[in-house]
């Protein structure tokens, strides 16, 4: 897995962005950009070629699920893998995210091992599909 891949972390809580950034950093990923909701993430995503998006669901402006749908709806970035890290733990939400094309779903509170496991799984699948 390319440790230099460009990652966008989207969460309205600065604490959570920093935690995810730290954990990713500990896993060896350091090319990380942050956005505080889907609305501010969208132009950033369109401007730069991101390899991976980690997003929260419940955010003001644009939610993570809408961001995911927008990504899947834009041919240029539609294939970007998206990992959702959210406190939303209802069955309906998980199904909704899956139907919207999410690549991984982590329920907060989570731990470093879960984050690593999900990222590994996402890129393993992508490698298999390639």
């Amino acid at each position: 897995m390319d440790k230099n891949m460009k990652i966008l972390v989207v969460d309205d809580f600065s604490t959570m962005r920093r935690i995810v950034r730290n954990l990713l950093g500990d896993l060896g990923y350091s090319n990380i950009t942050e956005a505080d909701d889907g609305k501010s993430a969208w132009p950033v995503l369109q401007a730069g070629s991101f390899d991976f998006v980690v997003t929260d669901w419940n955010m003001p402006g644009m939610t993570g699920i809408d961001l995911l749908r927008n990504i899947r709806g834009d041919a240029r970035i539609a294939k970007t893998p998206v990992l959702m890290v959210t406190a939303e733990a209802q069955r309906e939400q998980i199904i909704e995210a899956a139907q919207a094309g999410v690549n991984g779903y982590i329920i907060k509170p989570f731990n470093a091992a879960t984050l690593k496991e999900k990222i590994d799984k996402i890129f393993q699948r992508i490698a298999e599909a390639a």
Partner: peptide
């Protein structure tokens, strides 16, 4: 230290 960092997610959860 990783555990300590991730424990800070309480702030996001209680904040929400």
């Amino acid at each position: 230290l990783n555990e300590l960092a991730i424990a800070q997610e309480y702030q996001d959860l209680t904040g929400q």
